[in-house]
Amino acid sequence: MAGEAVVTVRLVRSFEHRNFKPVVFHGVSLDQTVQDFINHDTLLTDIATRPGLPPPFRKYAYVFFFFWQTNELVMSLDDDDKLILQDGQTLRTAGVANETEVAFFRKEDYGLYKANPKTAW
């Protein structure tokens, strides 16, 4: 259907340990706002109830911040102004297209990692 896309959301549980899980969403309307995409029952309910997704990912308190997926393993730490998707923007206006990857994480975790971008294995 026109205006719908496949979007992969990387659920980032830990930046330091590079702990993330990709979750694929089909039939995403690109004409909805970023906030509507997050708050829509599909995204939050899916994360909480998706079979095969480990409980630490299902129960984590993600906040409403998305980034474009770049060639970083988890995400880029540069150009926050360009990479953070704004709540009032439609996904299309924000640049999301079919087969786009975005990250979903806690703002506090990102701030701590950005201040000291070290990884632990």
Rank of each mutant, 00 (worst) to 15 (best):
D79N: 10
F105Q: 09
R92C: 04
L85T: 06
R106N: 06
A97E: 10
K82F: 15
K82H: 13
D78K: 12
R106D: 03
K82S: 11
E108A: 12
D109Q: 05
D87G: 08
N98G: 07
L85G: 00
D78W: 08
A103R: 14
L83W: 02
D80G: 07
K107S: 05
L83R: 11
K107W: 10
A94S: 15
T90H: 12
G95V: 12
D80W: 04
G95W: 11
A103M: 12
A94G: 05
A103C: 14
T100E: 06
D109G: 13
N98H: 13
R92W: 02
L85M: 10
T93A: 14
E108D: 10
V102C: 05
N98M: 04
E99S: 13
E108N: 10
T100G: 12
K82L: 14
V96G: 01
F104P: 00
Q89G: 00
L91T: 00
Q89C: 07
F105S: 09
T100F: 10
K107G: 09
G95M: 09
L83Y: 00
R92H: 14
R92G: 02
V102W: 09
F105N: 04
D109A: 05
T93M: 03
D81Q: 11
L85H: 01
G95T: 13
A94L: 06
V96N: 01
E101S: 13
T93N: 02
G88E: 10
D80K: 08
E108V: 15
V102Q: 05
E101P: 03
T90P: 06
L85A: 03
D78N: 07
D79Q: 12
G88D: 13
G88I: 02
K107C: 05
F105Y: 14
T100H: 04
R92V: 02
Q89V: 00
D109S: 13
V96L: 08
V96F: 11
A97T: 07
L91I: 08
E101Q: 13
A94H: 07
G95A: 00
A94K: 11
R92A: 11
G88A: 14
T93Y: 00
R92Q: 09
D87K: 15
R92L: 11
T100V: 11
